[in-house]
Design a protein around this nucleic acid. Structure first.
Lengths: 141, 141
DNA sequence: CTTAACCTTTAAGTGAAGTTGAGGGACAAG
DNA sequence: CTTGTCCCTCAACTTCACTTAAAGGTTAAG
């Protein structure tokens, strides 16, 4: 598969794919003419990258997480790579769940202001809930 | 409250708060000496902005969504956008969970290698399953 | 009156994540 | 052998979300 086809299948632009390669997130072999030659795995890799990015991982973080080439894994190495993938997905899931809970709390706070409560009283009420709920906010890693 | 105090209470920097103001996300009145004068509501507003940003909204989007006055939060645009984001995250979580289960099954399968099968034959067997399993993955979004 | 900790503005700088453009090569169809 | 559509590299540009710097005003304490 050439880069244009991969772009279509992954929904990314050609330039983004080249950019990800330059950043060390993916690697690729070349045809005799210098064109990049991708296997179907590349679509999966790009989908993982996109999901991770959507979940708030930086490209630098994703570079750490991405296994090199799954097809070169043999026996123990393959299981190792798969386990690592499972761990990565678990991390992603945790981050997503946390973000979602934070938003759900926020919606509840916005909507639950009791009738007749002053803005200031509500602000206090909301603040108290925030301080409890928003401890684990930082996305960095 | 002056801007330094608001920065402490919100966990943002003074410069971020001024930046948000310059971007039209918040407004503020002034003391006689020109200093910004914030009410307790500002802390809540900044927490909403931070949550929305963590959820992937750009500042431009947040500017559209932010109610001018917190007491009119029921107006719905903000809550509606937040709910949609929650739905998106839920879908992503489901896909990730499914992918993870597939990989975990696969690991179990590898470790269950039939007696007498060479490691290489097993790797081939597993890789074929892997490619099959990942076809239904659709992590993107 | 000085010092220190606040605050003000405007402008420029930074880092992440790409996008765009220049200048060219590869290759199939007519 | 031109035309068109792919592809290549490399460098510059853009957008977003801030941060930092420069130059100075305000206020309380000693």
């Amino acid at each position: 598969m050439q880069i244009g086809e991969l772009a279509k299948q992954s929904g990314l632009t050609v330039s983004s794919i080249r950019f990800y390669e330059a950043q060390g997130l993916i690697s690729v072999s070349r045809q005799a003419n210098g064109y990049r030659a991708y296997s179907a795995d590349a679509v999966v890799a790009l989908n993982i990258i996109t999901s991770a990015r959507d979940a708030g991982f930086t490209l630098a973080e994703i570079r750490q997480l991405m296994p090199g080439d799954l097809s070169h894994c043999r026996d123990g190495a393959l299981v190792g790579a798969l386990r690592k993938r499972v761990d990565d997905i678990r991390m992603l899931e945790q981050r997503l769940a946390q973000t979602r809970l934070q938003i759900e709390d926020l919606i509840a706070d916005i909507e639950d202001r009791p009738e007749g409560m002053t803005r200031e009283a509500n602000a206090d009420r909301v603040l108290k809930r925030f301080k409890g709920a928003r401890r684990t906010q930082a996305l960095g890693g």
